[in-house]
Design a protein around this nucleic acid. Structure first.
Lengths: 135, 135
DNA sequence: AACACTATGTAATAATATAACATTTATAAG
DNA sequence: CTTATAAATGTTATATTATTACATAGTGTT
């Protein structure tokens, strides 16, 4: 049998898996040092170990970084193999973050050209407002 | 005569003016500690003095923060009184950043509603790609 | 003058992220 | 299966980004 290339790309290393599991089960974005604190019992002791796993997880699209918050959430968009087109809504009161998946929005942004006719390979969009609960 | 409320809001304090001038004449986004280094000869000695001025300048829309780079650029969009609707293109090689002003884009995003019909009061969009020179 | 508000100055420290180097583990090719 | 290569790990130290806390000074209004 053996492991195909596709299978392999889905296999995370030990540290990557530990950190992904933590982020994936969190209802809210996690910060790097919060992650570090929470995985110390699993043997991950240093910031760099966390940042390396985060970098890789972002690279392969398993998680996204919320830039305005320096925090990370799991990708819940099944089509998201790479971190190249992301959109989030962020509640300015409770800090709840939701990944937006709107075909219309992603189509509009993927096709957006600036004045010079330049198209872009990647984007990140963060919307801010008040969530249902906080309104 | 006196100074009206509108006039007052356009007047920057000493530190704010020094820091705005520096950012405004820079061809590229400046980081907080780069700013600090460059204004020390003008008597601004501590990080907090820089961050306070930056906070205010962002609040009144004179500058914008490029979240993915932790850097600041002057707003060149005359209609931008507040930092509530921003879009940038970022070259991944030379790190050149340009503020995008597209009526179509801002209209689309200002009117965007998510699945729950929620509208947002603010957004920030960062496009990534290669600029003309770097292609 | 009294008040409220905004801005400043200063020191200390918190929070976020990377550099450098040694070692180990996983994968693919011969 | 062994050798070459790439990917991941471990560890220490340090760089970068940002805030807390507290004291003081300026500005505009009443």
């Amino acid at each position: 049998m053996g492991i195909s290339k596709i299978d392999k790309m889905q296999n995370l290393s030990k540290n990557q898996q530990i950190i992904f599991d933590l982020i994936n089960k969190s209802p809210e974005p996690l910060k790097a040092y919060t992650i570090l604190f929470n995985v110390q019992k699993k043997g991950i002791k240093a910031p760099l170990q966390v940042y390396r796993a985060l970098d890789k997880l972002v690279e392969i699209g398993k998680i996204h970084k919320i830039e305005s918050r320096n925090a990370f959430i799991a990708c819940h968009n099944s089509s998201c193999q790479v971190a190249k087109a992301t959109a989030f809504s962020i509640c300015e009161i409770c800090e709840k973050v939701t990944e937006i998946s709107s075909a219309g929005l992603s189509k509009y942004l993927a096709n957006f050209k600036d004045k010079d006719g330049m198209k872009y390979s990647k984007y990140n969009l963060e919307f801010f407002g008040l969530c249902k609960k906080c309104r």
